[in-house]
């Protein structure tokens, strides 16, 4: 076992220890963590936004900036693909 393998195995051990300890501290299956924001959105979505689908209300109203970033990512990806494949067209 040379020096490179030793380094790799030591990093793998550290990574595995952290992963196992973070998995042990996860909450149990089917019981999500609760905080005040969840209950606020569940209670007030229909009155405030008029949408009964809570996920869409969060995506387009409460967290609109996130959707703006997602739209920018999609636009950039499509522009990159078209740029690469159009150059070799002729």
């Amino acid at each position: 076992m040379n020096k490179r393998d030793l380094l790799a195995y030591s990093f793998l051990t550290v990574f595995a220890v952290f992963t196992i300890f973070s998995m042990l501290s996860m909450h149990s299956f089917g019981v999500p963590d609760e905080n005040a924001m969840d209950q606020y959105i569940i209670d007030n979505t229909v009155e405030e936004t008029g949408a009964s689908n809570g996920v869409t209300a969060v995506v387009f109203d409460y967290r609109g900036f996130d959707t703006l970033g997602e739209a920018t990512v999609l636009f950039t990806a499509v522009a990159g693909v078209i740029l690469v494949f159009r150059r070799l067209k002729k």
């Binding site: 229909v46 009155e47 936004t49 008029g50 949408a51 009964s52 869409t56 209300a57 387009f60 109203d61 959707t67």
Partner: peptide
């Protein structure tokens, strides 16, 4: 939305953004 039931004409700018 009347008594907690949304319909196709509610939602404000959410359908337009969709």
């Amino acid at each position: 939305p009347l008594d907690g039931a949304a319909n196709i004409n509610t939602g404000g700018i959410i359908p337009l953004m969709n």
